[in-house]
């Protein structure tokens, strides 16, 4: 199978910061809003280089989202940033009415999503954000897998007219996609060709899916790995074409199985081509404190969990 090289571990939020640096130079209408988390969102350089386009709202996310909606009136492209919990759940109604229903061109960019923010624990580890955001009509939902892809997605969404939720994280993870690659919203990426099982992964789980495919290959199992960086709109065609070949699927995400990628895939398959599916996701639970690796192990979100899920789904096939 095709091998991917990790060019060095780095956090996806730094990919966001790098993307913002570039947008600062290339898109003069891009403005950034931040609710007292400039360093955590890697916005220090943008704030330093473009102080007139950087808006510090203080610890007041609801006002930040409303301001971002208002700033679009007159042509700005606001990037409203915070931790994923405070950028979605805390401000759901502000996003719903002032951004989504009002059709405003706001980019909600959220770091520290999922379990892998680690020791801060469940108050900060949102596992419901993809569901919250994908249920909003007109909202595009993107969950890139590494530094390079996060940077590319950050840049690409500036040219998409409409609200976007961009989700990334805190831990250092392998960086393996192409540097300065083009990011196409809604276009799934075939990473590995296979014939026995389809593994659909998003965010941090994509690298684990690649590792799982390698381990499975050693056991004679041919896994197809697809990077679903865009949860909405889902690349129906890529998924259905793969399922046509493999006849079973494992979905992988750092998110509750309710409301996430897996559920979107289930809906697509139930309507078009029902096959057995296994979910690598959290099981309707909150997280807790721990290191990212400990948490991913305890909650079943790592390479080993994907291999086990593949074995389960193959047994049913």
């Amino acid at each position: 199978m095709k091998k991917f090289t990790n060019s060095g571990n780095i956090d996806t939020r730094s990919g966001f910061g790098a993307g913002m640096d570039e947008l600062g130079k290339t898109h003069e209408d891009v403005v950034a809003l931040c609710a007292d988390l400039t360093g955590s969102l890697k916005l220090n350089d943008f704030a330093k280089n473009h102080p007139e386009r950087f808006f510090q709202t203080g610890i007041a996310e609801a006002n930040m989202i409303g301001m971002a909606a208002g700033m679009t009136i007159g042509g700005k492209i606001p990037y409203a940033t915070s931790f994923a919990n405070f950028a979605t759940g805390r401000v759901y109604d502000q996003i719903r009415q002032s951004v989504a229903y009002s059709g405003k061109n706001v980019k909600i960019c959220a770091s520290h999503a999922g379990l892998t923010l680690g020791e801060d624990g469940a108050t900060h580890q949102i596992l419901e954000d993809l569901g919250l955001m994908k249920m909003l009509p007109g909202m595009t939902v993107i969950n890139p897998c590494d530094f390079n892809q996060t940077k590319a997605a950050t840049i690409a969404i500036a040219d998409h007219d409409g609200p976007v939720y961009l989700r990334f994280g805190r831990p250092s993870v392998p960086n393996f996609t192409e540097a300065d690659g083009k990011f196409e919203i809604g276009k799934a990426l075939h990473l590995v060709e296979g014939s026995d099982v389809t593994i659909l992964a998003t965010g941090h789980l994509v690298w684990h899916a690649l590792e799982a495919a390698e381990a499975l290959e050693e056991k004679g199992i041919s896994a197809e790995v697809i990077n679903i960086h865009t949860i909405k709109p889902l690349d129906d065609e890529a998924i259905l074409n793969s399922i046509k070949k493999t006849r079973c699927v494992v979905t992988c995400e750092e998110h509750n199985y309710l409301g996430g990628l897996g559920e979107s895939v289930s809906g697509l398959l139930a309507k078009n081509d029902p096959v057995y599916q296994e979910f690598v996701a959290t099981n309707d639970t909150f997280g807790e404190s721990g290191t990212p690796a400990q948490l991913m192990e305890k909650y079943g979100l790592n390479t080993k969990s994907i291999v086990e899920a593949v074995n389960r789904v193959l047994a049913k096939k």
Binding site: F55, A62, M67, A69, G70, M71, T72, I73, D93, S98
Partner: peptide, 14 residues
């Protein structure tokens, strides 16, 4: 309760 934030944003853009 959302309108003042929106107005503020529009004012900043102006």
């Amino acid at each position: 309760g959302q309108g003042m934030s929106v107005a503020l944003g529009a004012a900043q853009t102006k």
